[in-house]
Simulated scan of single mutants.
Amino acid sequence: MSIAARVLTVAPLWVLLAGASLAIGAVPPPQVEEFIYEEAPFPQCHASTIAETPDGTLVASWFGGTREKHPDVGIWVARKTPGASWSAPVEVANGIQYTTPEGQVVRHPCWNPVLFQAEDGPLLLFYKVGPSPRDWWGMLTTSLDGGLSWSTPRRLPEGILGPIKNKPIALPNGSLLCPTSTEDDGWRVHFETTPDLGLTWIRTGPINDGESIGAIQGSILTRADGSLVALGRSRQARLWQSVSTDGGASWSEMTLTDLPNPNSGTDAVTLADGRHLLVYNATERGRSPLNVAISEDDGQTWTMIHTLESEPGEYSYPAVIQAKDGTIHITYTWNRTRIKHVELDPNQL
């Protein structure tokens, strides 16, 4: 099916849900559209993340195992060096806690890895371990060789989860601002800042009450004036949004946008030319279609430019970055069985 036809497939629903705050556009087919792997030693996967290393290698990670919440779920990584194919998935972290004298292994599932390549520093891999999102804890492992090998994972300080699904951003002072959230007392968004790549932390309080708007899993965009916009998933069938004018120390009252959301993860990135790009399910129910939208006015209005998937199924939890060469890379869950990678040309948006 052509890209134009795929956009038209969902256009009536999109127009109905988003009203006057959108336009419909289209882009040429992706430069790259591929599965990161065809076969793996786990039946299910979810919650991918992607980063680029200084030499141009793409590194992707996700959690995989029998099924979400199963104790055997671990964190897996694959690499794609320039001009090569993706490497076979390798498990780099698990939730093993200890072994009893009787030989029983006590283990918890892993969740939501988040990759971030520090400037002049290591590749960071944040993830969570625990029985459920209500009581998980944050973990961090690092790589000095572009994801080939990883340090012994360490637990983050009590009450610090790290970026909960989507990547941090680097502030002008070099600190990382991490969008995070909790689910143990309503769905509430807060932010964590680390000036030293995860050694010490500053944590803000929640920016919503978890009742009038139940919100989690933010992404952070940077405006031309230096202010920040966060937006993400909610239980209210719309994406939420908040603004910070002081580098993430405080945030405006959370509001709901016109963009539909079926209570599923999203991701967004500020492009080098100042535009913002959003990947999300443009529907109130289900996890198909999966769409790409762009904003040229600091997130006030969005134009849907591409539909990644429109067939029945689950296409969800996207991650998006812009590489040094300008190309846009998106990964997402494909029916819980594989992770898909798509590359777009920003000059064609």
Rank of each mutant, 00 (worst) to 15 (best):
G74Q: 04
T57M: 04
G147T: 09
E38L: 12
S149W: 01
G74I: 02
P43S: 05
A60V: 11
A60Y: 10
R67V: 09
D72A: 05
G138R: 00
Q104K: 13
Y98C: 07
Q117V: 04
K80Q: 13
T99L: 01
G130N: 02
P113H: 09
E38Y: 14
F116M: 04
G64P: 01
E102Y: 14
E38F: 14
G147E: 06
V129P: 01
P109Q: 12
L58M: 07
A84W: 05
A93G: 12
S87W: 08
E38T: 13
C110W: 02
T100F: 05
A78R: 03
A118Q: 08
W86N: 01
R67N: 14
G130L: 09
P41I: 14
E52W: 03
T57E: 02
K128M: 02
P82K: 01
L123N: 07
T142M: 08
Q44L: 12
E68I: 06
V92K: 02
R134C: 06
W62C: 07
G103S: 07
P101T: 10
I50W: 03
D55M: 01
E39M: 07
G103Y: 01
C45K: 11
G147A: 05
C110T: 10
P28A: 12
Y37G: 02
A84P: 06
V106L: 13
T81I: 00
H108N: 08
I50P: 10
P30D: 02
V105A: 10
W150T: 02
G74V: 10
E91Y: 00
D145T: 00
P122D: 08
V114H: 15
I36K: 06
C45W: 05
C45V: 11
P29N: 14
N94D: 15
T142V: 13
D135K: 12
P109H: 11
S48I: 02
E39I: 03
E68A: 06
K69Y: 04
P122C: 02
F116Q: 09
S143M: 05
A118W: 04
P133C: 04
V105L: 11
